[in-house]
Each structure stands twice: as structure tokens, then as C-alpha cells.
Design a binder for these strands. Structure first.
Length: 291
DNA sequence: TGCCAGGCCGAAA
DNA sequence: TTTCGGCATGGC
């Protein structure tokens, strides 16, 4: 396991080499996030934490169209580059199912998303399909987020809880989110009003944080666990006995015998394996060298 | 046209 | 404690 990333400044972008293999496709299309889109050049463009970027694979690693400073300040943590997924994968090389799961999702990383964006996005995800989730999230950002940049580089940030808390379900009707609109506004109110305190949740056990999150109407076990894993970095949010049994059932029931197809749902179950891995993972040194 | 999608809520059993 | 219908909407 290499734990050292070399960052090369290529003027309009930086290239990261020497770390673990990172798959933009597996990472951005597995269903853990909803604001990244593939482009016709093989890369992915997305907005996170108020930043916009394009990420693509290179011969020796991957590249981001940002500065080394921006990488160090935001993208490095967002992409969870300080965690050794190689070690995690090695620890799960125990049986056919887990081995194929790891192979299928090779290069996938669990993104460290903004808490509010993760919570709101997974409220929208309930009883919904991924293309429509992305469509609603996009409409939410376009309609109520902050507009940044200009021309082709223009984009909208994810709307703040304060902004959404001031709205009514009717205001959100252009989103066509259905009954989820009310849930969004209630959650926004809880966050903006301090009823759901992200910093306090960080200091709680996963179980306590889950209980606290589920006090909000419209947030059940599934949404809460997605929020805790993807938004709060609580890597043990998904109990293996609950979620992996589902994944195993779908794996064994696959018609072509290949196990894992191009299925975002299955890929997410793969993430749950990572979620169970904190006990064996190692933190690595990711100091960014001079460019 | 009908089924279903990465749920949740609340009532009834 | 578990089960089940209803909820909005749109993709297939």
C-alpha cells in the first residue's frame, strides 16, 4: 500500500499519482451522491461543498481541474484519500461473495459529503429511482441554491437549510418531489433551528446519532443510516446483518451468474462492506508534497 | 396501463 | 412488535 500522493501542477489542473487506484465511475455512479455527471471525454463533473470540479482518470492516477491548494483544502478529504481501501479490501478477501464485491467496486471510495446535502438528498431518495433523485436534487439546487461562476462554468450550490426552512411545500412544487417536499422542509427547519445539531451528532455514538436523527418526521432507519455514513462519516452506520443479507440475496439471485451487474443498488451494498471495515482500516499519511 | 423505485407514517392486527 | 395501505411522481 502506497500512502504517498504526488501532486503535479499542470496549470489548468493537477494530477495525483502514486496513491491507490481511484475509479471515478465506481465512486460517482454507485448511488452515494447525486450531483456528478459523466461527460463525453470520459470524466465526471460535479459540485460539492460549494466547489465545482471535473475529475478524470490518467495513465498514472487521476486529475482534477483545481489548484493544489484547493485539492489540499477540500477535494482530498471529500474523496476520502486518507483512508486505505486497499487494506480494507484485503481484509475482506474471505469468500467468493465478498471477493467479487470488492472486485466489482474496485476503486470506489466513500465520499465525505456535506451533512446537510447528504441528509436532504437521501430524504429525496426514499421510494425513488436514481435518475429521478438526480433530477429533483438538480432542480432543488437550480431553484434555491446560490449561483456561482459565469458562462459555461456557472453552477448552483446546494441550498442551505436556512433557505429551505423559510419555504412551504408549495414553494417546492416545481421539484415534483411529491410527499417528500414536506419532509425536506421539516428537516431544514430542524437543522436551521438547532434541533438537529451536526456537531453534537459527531460526538455521539452511531446508535445515539441515529436515534436523534430519526426523531425528525420523514427520516426513518434507511435515510438516517445513509446520512450517517455519507454525511457524518460514521463508517459503521450500516449493520452488516441488515443490509448485506439483502445484497447476498440479490447476488445469489442474479440471472446471468455474474453476480454483480451494472447495478447501482448492488454497488451501494458494496459500500456497506466498507462501512463495516473501520475496525481494520488504517489511517495513512496524506501530506501533500510541494508542487 | 400497470408496476415499481435505495421509505416512511400511522393504524390495525 | 409486525404487517399493511397510502402517499406523489415518473421511468420503463
Amino acid at each position: 500500500m502506497k500512502n504517498y500522493y504526488s501532486v503535479t501542477d499542470c496549470k489548468s489542473y493537477i494530477e495525483i499519482r502514486g496513491g491507490e487506484y481511484f475509479s471515478p465511475r465506481h465512486t460517482f455512479e454507485c448511488g452515494q451522491c447525486f450531483r456528478w455527471r459523466p461527460d463525453d471525454r470520459g470524466g465526471y463533473s460535479g459540485v460539492a461543498g460549494g466547489h465545482k470540479a471535473r475529475i478524470w482518470e490518467t495513465d498514472g492516477g487521476f486529475a482534477i481541474d483545481c489548484t493544489a491548494e484547493e485539492f489540499a483544502a477540500f477535494w482530498r478529504d471529500y474523496l476520502d484519500l486518507g483512508r486505505s481501501y486497499t487494506d480494507i479490501a484485503a481484509a475482506f478477501d474471505t469468500d467468493d461473495f465478498t471477493r467479487q464485491a470488492m472486485e466489482f467496486g474496485h476503486g470506489l471510495r466513500v465520499l465525505r459529503q456535506e451533512p446537510w446535502e447528504a441528509l436532504c438528498s437521501f430524504i429525496i431518495s426514499q421510494c425513488n429511482n436514481i435518475p429521478r433523485i438526480m433530477k429533483i436534487v438538480d432542480a432543488l439546487c437550480t431553484g434555491f441554491g446560490e449561483k456561482k461562476g459565469s458562462g459555461e462554468g456557472a453552477y448552483c450550490t446546494f441550498p442551505t437549510p436556512e433557505r429551505l426552512a423559510a419555504l412551504t411545500a408549495e414553494d417546492l412544487s416545481p421539484l415534483r418531489a411529491g410527499y417528500r417536499a414536506g419532509y425536506i422542509i421539516e428537516a431544514a427547519g430542524a437543522v436551521a433551528g438547532g434541533g438537529l445539531d451536526f456537531e453534537a451528532l459527531r460526538n455521539m455514538s452511531t446508535e445515539e446519532a441515529r436515534k436523534e436523527t430519526m426523531k425528525i418526521r420523514g427520516i426513518g432507519r434507511k435515510v438516517a443510516d445513509c446520512f450517517l455514513l455519507f454525511g457524518m462519516g460514521k463508517m459503521d452506520a450500516f449493520p452488516v446483518d441488515t443490509w448485506m443479507k439483502k445484497a447476498a440475496g440479490r447476488y445469489q439471485g442474479s440471472k446471468d451468474g455474474s453476480g454483480f451487474g451494472e447495478n447501482a443498488g448492488i454497488a451501494q451494498q458494496y459500500i456497506f462492506y466498507f462501512a463495516r471495515s473501520t475496525k481494520i482500516e488504517k489511517q495513512v499519511d496524506i501530506a501533500v508534497p510541494q508542487v
